[in-house]
């Protein structure tokens, strides 16, 4: 897929009035987050494979560390402020869920989930999404609830916490204290992403390297 916002990088604004000190610290810490030693190596491998299918890495941009961020959440076992009455807490839900995903792959295809090719992995994930599961492991974890209340929100939240994902969207990213001036349609502040082929004289590439 063609990059809609060529050369646009939210991080180029890091040292501009769009990023206050606390934002620089928070994002810096996030970018430096590595995978913690939590779960079993097998569970971590399964998670990496699931994350790759749910949120493929951006092309031609630095990879996100979504898996590390999900693992970090699992390690801290932090609540979101609510728990579906049929689901266990964060860490336990992920432990059971990853085991069940792997069991589902073993049962249907005779291989661990982590080594499946993309199409096969998606077939397993679709079955879980639709609750069409066979593995006995799902008896203690309703598959559709795990999918929609845990797996999807945790993974997409981790991925879209990363500046690479923001850049690919043409999202402005952090914006305090400068904020924005031009609010109308088709108007762009010089520190915003320019979209390819938007009909302007100066190319999007040229404008995007000057957002910082």
């Amino acid at each position: 897929m063609v990059d809609r916002f060529p050369h646009y990088d939210v991080l180029a604004k890091r040292d501009t009035p769009s990023w206050n000190p606390q934002t620089r610290k928070v994002i810096g810490d996030r970018l430096a987050t590595e995978e913690p030693e939590v779960l079993t190596p097998g569970q971590r491998a399964t998670l990496r494979a699931v994350v790759d299918r749910i949120v493929p890495q951006p092309e031609q941009r630095p990879a996100t560390n979504a898996t590390a961020l999900v693992l970090h959440k699992i390690m801290t076992n932090e609540s979101d402020g609510f728990r579906h009455h049929e689901l266990p807490q964060v860490r336990e839900a992920w432990e059971r869920g990853l085991d069940a995903i792997d069991a589902e792959a073993q049962e249907r295809l005779g291989h661990p989930f982590a080594i499946l090719d993309g199409d096969k992995a998606d077939e397993i994930l679709r079955a879980i999404e639709q609750g069409d599961v066979q593995a006995a492991a799902w008896a203690s974890l309703p598959a559709m609830l795990f999918w929609s209340w845990r797996l999807i929100p945790d993974i997409v939240s981790a991925y879209y916490a990363h500046p690479s994902a923001w850049s690919a969207m043409g999202f402005g990213g952090p914006a305090a204290p400068r904020g924005y001036v031009r609010l109308q349609a088709n108007r762009r502040d010089p520190w915003e992403a320019a979209e390819r082929d938007d009909g302007r004289v100066i190319s999007a590439e040229e404008r995007n390297i000057h957002v910082g």
Binding site: V156, Y160, W166, M169
Partner: peptide, 25 residues
């Protein structure tokens, strides 16, 4: 972005490249 991604993933069952492509619009 995160709220929007959860809306698309939850409300339209988008994931994989479909989700990424939609987010980028």
């Amino acid at each position: 972005p995160i709220i929007w991604a959860k809306s698309l993933a939850g409300g339209r069952s988008l994931w994989g490249q479909d989700l990424i492509d939609e987010m980028n619009r």
